[in-house]
């Protein structure tokens, strides 16, 4: 079990998160996929920290966990707001960025 295993695992997790963001319409799953990608990065950070024997990476990873928590708070608040607005958590229902739907 070499460091490479951890790194490959982290990369794979990141890829899975990517697929989730692209393929899913359920806002909750999209949100969790984003969290998953962040966590994959976290795993990589922890691994690098362990490889170098440097705790800076672990600290960074710790800070990243805090960022994940902040992201969760905002994303969930947004989901609540969006759900209240349209009674839906389908990403396809939220297309306010395009002009024709604004009218």
């Amino acid at each position: 079990m070499s460091p490479l295993h951890f790194l490959l695992l982290g990369t794979l997790l990141f890829g899975i998160g990517l697929v989730g963001v692209i393929a899913r319409r359920n806002l909750f799953v999209v949100y969790m996929s984003i969290e998953l990608m962040l966590s994959a990065v976290n795993l990589l950070l922890a691994t690098f920290s362990r490889i170098r024997g440097d705790e800076g990476g672990a600290v960074l990873s710790l800070l990243l966990i805090a960022v994940i928590a902040a992201e969760a708070a905002i994303f969930l608040a947004m989901i609540i707001a969006l759900f209240r607005a349209k009674r839906s958590i389908d990403a396809h229902d939220f297309t306010q960025l395009s002009q024709e739907h604004n009218a």
Binding site: I22, R25, A91, H92, F94, T95, L97, S98
Partner: peptide
């Protein structure tokens, strides 16, 4: 081109990715 820009952020992410 505007059919591409459908306001769906996931699709924008898709193009980018």
């Amino acid at each position: 081109f505007s059919t591409l820009q459908n306001g769906n952020v996931r699709h924008y992410a898709l193009y980018f990715l």
